[in-house]
Amino acid sequence: MTARKPPSPMQKKAPAATRIAPGAYPGFSRADATRLSLALRDPETTSKAARIIAGKAVELRDVVLAHVDRLAAATRGSDLDAVFEHAHEIRGLAGNAGLVATGRIANGLCKYLDAIGRADRSPELSLVVLHLEAIARAAHAEDEATRLGDTVANELAALVEKKLAEINFSATRK
């Protein structure tokens, strides 16, 4: 083990920090921790929880579809805050609705809008519309987990990465 070097005298000292070790603050007792740990690793409990998540998929799919409609309306009205809000809801819910590709596409749109907003630039509307159309198709597809859905998600992800690289490049040139 390497010994840690003390700070050099040239180094500016940070304000004092106090460290409060486990056991010195309210927390789980050792006996509780052991029992909780066993319960958390119980395969029967994990299977039960996984079944609960799977059982919510149909309900969540309806919620995602409602957000897709609102996303379309927000895009038509060029309301970018609402576009981000609904795309964000879709990316958060789609995976648990069994709409993995839909969630990935929505995540790409969120990443793009987030980066654009931070760079204080206007988004390319065509890119937003492209994502909206892909999200709507993937979410409505009978079998969303098709190669087509994955391919579209991959291609749009590559496009977003390229746009993010352009945004970063122009930010470094400023």
């Binding site: 840690r4 070097k5 003390p6 700070p7 050099s8 180094q11 000292k13 940070a14 304000p15 004092a16 920090a17 460290r19």
Partner: peptide
């Protein structure tokens, strides 16, 4: 390093 904390 750098060690930025006082307690470092």
């Amino acid at each position: 390093g750098p060690w930025r904390r006082h307690d470092d």
